[in-house]
Design a protein around this nucleic acid. Sequence first.
DNA 1: CTATTAAACGATAATAATTATCGTTTGTCA
DNA 2: TGACAAACGATAATTATTATCGTTTAATAG
Lengths: 143, 143
Amino acid sequence: MNAAEIREFRDACSAAGIAVTHQRQVVWQALRSMHGHPSPEEIYERVRPRIPAISLATVYKNIHLFIESGMFREVSLHHGSMRVETNPEPHHHLVCRVCKSIRDIDAETLGVAGKPRRLPDGFLAERYAIDILGLCAKCQKSM
Amino acid sequence: MNAAEIREFRDACSAAGIAVTHQRQVVWQALRSMHGHPSPEEIYERVRPRIPAISLATVYKNIHLFIESGMFREVSLHHGSMRVETNPEPHHHLVCRVCKSIRDIDAETLGVAGKPRRLPDGFLAERYAIDILGLCAKCQKSM
DNA sequence: CTATTAAACGATAATAATTATCGTTTGTCA
DNA sequence: TGACAAACGATAATTATTATCGTTTAATAG
Ligand SMILES: [Mn+2]
Ligand SMILES: [Mn+2]
Ligand SMILES: [Zn+2]
Ligand SMILES: [Zn+2]
């Protein structure tokens, strides 16, 4: 809305090497104005009042560009389908953001321990699931 | 395959209040024999040589039953669609396994800190994503 | 060891999320 | 002010998952 925000958006686009389009800016501002963890559909519904003719595909394309360029992040990586854990031992995961591989790592090797005291809003913790996001050795080489 | 495993499967079924069927047992054994984090399709392909007539739907149904009854777990909860993070601050999440709500929690409140030293296989860590899985206050009451 | 009955199964249609295609429009840059 | 690649909208296609429904099977009571 304001000038500083528009400048920030333009700078982010040029840093990412993408064009400054009206649709892109409105999607970006919608995300800026939203709280929580919206789905593409929810973002679409937020954008539609401003650009009634926008396509859901455009929203998807721009979300992906924003994530690739680091302007926003995904809450958790999608693997395309559900995955079943076959390792019954308590452990955590190394997840590669490029090839999406998942490797087990036990809490000891990881060096984080200890359940917390009390959680906000009376949340009852049953399990800690730590994903370390990054690059596997193979994907580091191919860059 | 062996008697002890079959006994374990039968006990788990009766504890879960579900019938002992041939298909169910083969899916269970397939999961037992697999490593890593297989998808329903991969489990299906593993089961097919033993029961060529099995339906993919049956594999899905049994995976869900196994997860509901605690015989296996999902690698990470599915929210049905991708979610975009709107909070630019580093933080973690409280995820309710019943209503699938996601609440932000900052690392400080959580009381876990510290990047680890070196990760196995040359994995390059870029970000820690901690999901605390459990029950939100509302879902605790409705039980 | 049967008969009853609810649960489970297989086939397949339906749904939901996401991606691909393609002709048209619009930024970018010289 | 063009030329051209990038982006857009419409929509078809794909993928993952779930629902439906007629048939088969496991549980169990007698
Ligand atoms: Mn694992
Ligand atoms: Mn968050
Ligand atoms: Zn990788
Ligand atoms: Zn809940």
